[in-house]
Design a protein around this nucleic acid. Structure first.
Lengths: 213, 213
DNA sequence: ATGAAAATTAATTACTTGATTAATTAATTG
DNA sequence: CAATTAATTAATCAAGTAATTAATTTTCAT
């Protein structure tokens, strides 16, 4: 009832950057309800447009999801690669530094609402066996994951590559679950203070895991 | 074309134990496609019954999902509690033994198709923020998780309880992802041999993580 | 100016979805 | 044996669902 500016048919005056608005709302809804659980109507309503706009900008539901995921996913992957390049230029790279640089880009997303939505979405996607999930993850993350495994193998030469891949997978599962904030930690541990130290705990846990034999 | 025994209206002769059949098929479909992505018709078709049967035995979709999850979830929780009780009767309990006993019941499910389906379902559910997910997880797992945290705190007295809860959460994320078999390890590491040693790797990784400071 | 391109709404189409009901047959109980 | 209860199919319903199209208006390039 507050401010309802009437909608007129046809191209509006000025510009509205609706594509980004739709992506943002879709990110939140996909995070809360999953791909199948979210309807294009919900996205359109949340973005305050008609559902034909989602088709205009993103063609169909699957493509909208792809763009939601790749928008931030590619950025994370790129940040990881840049960090790795930087670290490998210096000498005596430590395991802890390497692990932290892998987790940092994701951890940073915890500081905004949209970022947290993406982390939940991300966690969900990694637990899904569908072709869409596999294809997206391959496209976005494989290159950087391989590069990090290579660096880890160099740091832990006594452990076979296959073991490093297994542990990498354990670390990914651990941080996805912890960062996705679906772990009910507040409820379970009855601690209401923010988990500021979550990144450092995750780094320590993972480093301990990689060193263990 | 093979054997199509005609279906007659009305109660059939003998007994068919359809409820279990529906649960099994629902478990597989929910695991592959998620809750929203699975239709009652798919479940009914897979179980070779009409969709009214799902309503007859399980009332509605949400209740069917609850029963699918609690069927195995409660068993896991009970096995954990029994293991913990047994271990606490003896003296000098090791961290490694404790961690292994927590992971064993889930790991055992990896040996059957239905068990693997449940593990994927389980992983999915833990990445979902919906009320249904939280309520189910609370009901099924909270008691045993608290009991294990208490045992871990006793073994690692120098670490605050809140930290143990965080690490517990990291371990849960790690094993859920690894056991759910959605980690594309075969694709990434190009290793086709079965991950027979996955439980031991997960135990070692987690123990290393708990010990790290 | 003018015509093409961009951005939008409203309306609609063909199809699924979860759930319900009536009819039907076998098993159980008394 | 009669009556009730259990188990099942077929048919249907109202409410969504993704996607498409036509009409409309502004902006931009010539």
């Amino acid at each position: 009832m507050a401010h309802t500016k009437q909608k007129r048919v046809g191209r509006p005056e000025g510009q509205r950057n609706l594509a980004d608005k739709i992506l943002d709302k879709a990110e939140i809804l996909f995070a809360e309800q999953g791909y199948s659980g979210t309807t294009l109507r919900q996205v359109a309503d949340a973005a305050d447009v008609t559902s034909a706009m989602t088709a205009y900008y993103f063609k169909n539901k699957e493509n909208l999801f792809r763009e939601v995921f790749t928008r931030r996913g590619l950025e994370i992957a790129e940040q990881r690669m840049q960090q790795l390049d930087m670290l490998q230029k210096g000498d005596n790279l430590s395991l802890e530094t390497l692990v932290r640089s892998f987790l940092q880009p994701s951890s940073d997303l915890r500081h905004t609402n949209q970022g947290r939505a993406f982390l939940r979405l991300h966690g969900r996607l990694h637990m899904e066996p569908e072709p869409l999930s596999f294809s997206l993850r391959r496209e976005v993350y494989d290159a950087s994951t391989r590069a990090y495994v290579e660096a880890l193998v160099a740091l832990l030469p006594e452990q076979p590559e296959k073991l490093i891949y297994q542990k990498m997978s354990l670390m990914v599962g651990a941080y996805l679950y912890a960062f996705s904030d679906t772990n009910r930690l507040k409820e379970l541990a009855m601690s209401e203070d923010a988990t500021d130290d979550l990144l450092e705990t995750t780094v320590a846990f993972s480093v301990g895991g990689f060193l263990a034999t």
